[in-house]
Structures are given as structure tokens and as C-alpha cells.
Simulated scan of single mutants.
Amino acid sequence: MAEPRMTNRGPGRLLIAVYILFAIAATSRAGLQIATKFDRAPVAYLLSAAAALIYIVAAVGLARAGHAGRRVALACCTVELVGVVAVGVLSVADKALFPDETVWSGFGSGYGYIPLVLPMLGLYWLWRTRRDPA
């Protein structure tokens, strides 16, 4: 059985860098919101914190590149995609549910829709670097 290709090589390095950038951005945003105005929109701020945690763990999974890292990255990218779509739909359908924006509100519109595209790129990269058929 062939070994999987490394997820932390070539374009995977750029993907990891973007995940790290979004981990920093989401952590900073959530930290500030939770510290200064948590009572205003606790669900939105906790969702941003959850997104930050997912970005961190996904980056670590992609960087580790082994079997366990791939599984972790796959789980994170899947949860991230489901989350950004669910929060995106809910935030567009009923703005009252999220009195303040999350990283995933409006499908990540506040971040140029990168939160919507990023898990798709992550899943594609994991698929692309799966075991060689040979």
C-alpha cells in the first residue's frame, strides 16, 4: 500500500500559512469581543472562538502530514465547512440570531469569503495528496 503524499509540501505550505493567519485573526477578534462585550452577543463571539480553534487544529493537522494529521485536518475542514455554511445561512436568514458578526457570518463576507473557500481548498488538498493509486 502506497504512503500518502505529504500535506505540508508545495502548495500545502501556503494553505497552512493561510490557516495560521486566520487562526491569529479569529483568535484576536474573538478574544477582544469576549473580553470587552461578551454580554452583547455571546453566541456570535463563542462561534468566532470555535472557528479560531478549528483553524489552529487544522493548521497543526496539515503541518504534521502523517496519518493522524490527515485525519485531524479532514475532520477540521469538514466541521469548518459545515459551520461556515450553517452560520452563513442562519445569519442571512435571520439577522437577529447574530446581533454581531462572527468569522463565519454571511459565509465569511467580512473576510472576503475566505472562510467559505478555505475548507474547500483544505479538503481538495487532502484529496489531492491522498495515497497514490500505484
Rank of each mutant, 00 (worst) to 15 (best):
H67L: 12
L47W: 06
D39S: 15
R70A: 07
S109P: 00
A134H: 13
A51T: 11
R71G: 11
D132Y: 10
G122R: 04
V18S: 09
R131G: 12
A30R: 03
L97R: 06
F38A: 14
A41I: 00
A58F: 02
P115Q: 13
P4G: 13
S105C: 01
S109M: 08
L97F: 02
R29G: 00
V87S: 03
R9H: 11
V79N: 03
T7K: 06
A26T: 05
G12A: 02
C76V: 01
A58W: 03
L97T: 01
S105V: 00
L32A: 14
T129H: 09
G61E: 05
L90Y: 07
Q33F: 12
P133C: 14
R128W: 15
L14V: 13
L116Y: 04
D100R: 11
A93R: 09
S105H: 06
P99R: 12
L116C: 01
T102S: 12
Y45T: 07
A52R: 04
A52M: 07
R40I: 06
A63H: 15
R9T: 08
A44E: 08
V57Q: 12
F22M: 11
A96L: 07
Y111P: 00
G112I: 10
A51Q: 06
G31Q: 02
I114K: 02
V43M: 15
V72C: 02
L15E: 13
A50G: 12
V84M: 05
N8E: 02
T102V: 04
